[in-house]
Amino acid sequence: MNIREIQEQDNQDVEQLIRTCLIEFGANKPGTAWSDPDLSRFYELYQKDKTQYWVAVKDGRIIAGVGIGGVSGFPTICELQKMYALQEARGTGVAEQLLEVSLAFAKQYYEACYLETIHTMHAANRFYQKHGFQKLDEPLLKTEHFSCDAWYMKALQ
Rank of each mutant, 00 (worst) to 15 (best):
G70A: 15
G26L: 06
D49Y: 07
Y43V: 08
D149N: 13
T20R: 11
E5A: 09
E100P: 05
S72Y: 13
L136D: 01
H122V: 05
C113D: 05
D36R: 07
C148D: 08
A155R: 09
H122T: 07
M153C: 15
T120W: 01
A112H: 12
V57K: 14
G132N: 08
M121T: 10
Q9A: 12
G67C: 02
K48E: 07
L45V: 15
F127R: 05
K50C: 06
S35C: 15
Q97G: 12
Q129M: 05
M121V: 08
F146L: 01
H131L: 05
C21V: 06
A89W: 03
D49S: 11
S35W: 03
L17M: 06
T117N: 00
F25I: 03
A56P: 03
K82N: 08
E138P: 04
I18K: 05
P139Q: 07
Q47R: 15
Q52I: 15
F146K: 11
E5M: 13
E44T: 15
G132A: 01
Q16S: 07
Q52K: 13
R126F: 08
I68E: 00
W54M: 00
G73N: 14
S35R: 04
K82T: 08
E111T: 14
I68V: 14
K154Y: 05
R19S: 04
R4T: 09
E8H: 15
A104M: 04
G91P: 03
E88S: 13
F105K: 09
I68R: 09
P37Y: 08
I18T: 07
D13E: 14
I77R: 04
D10G: 13
D149T: 12
L140G: 06
Q157P: 02
K82M: 01
Q87R: 13
I68P: 03
E100N: 14
D38G: 07
K58I: 04
P30H: 06
T76E: 13
P37A: 10
C78M: 13
L136V: 05
V14S: 05
Y46Q: 10
Y109P: 00
A155I: 09
E100M: 08
K142L: 02
E144D: 15
M83N: 00
G132V: 03
Y43M: 08
R19Q: 11
G93N: 07
I6Q: 04
D149A: 03
D137N: 14
P75C: 02
A85F: 00
L80F: 06
D10W: 15
L156T: 10
A33V: 10
Q52R: 12
P139D: 04
L103N: 01
E44I: 14
L22N: 07
E138A: 10
Q87E: 02
E15R: 14
A106H: 00
H119P: 04
T76M: 10
Q134F: 02
V66C: 01
L156A: 04
S102A: 14
E138Y: 12
K29N: 14
C21N: 03
F133H: 01
F127K: 05
A112K: 13
I77Y: 02
W34T: 05
C113K: 11
V71H: 02
D36Q: 07
I18M: 02
E111Q: 10
L156I: 06
K107T: 06
I118N: 06
Q134W: 06
D49I: 03
G91E: 01
R41G: 01
V71M: 03
A33I: 12
A106C: 02
L141N: 11
A27D: 00
K135E: 07
W34L: 00
M153A: 08
H145I: 09
A155N: 13
A104C: 09
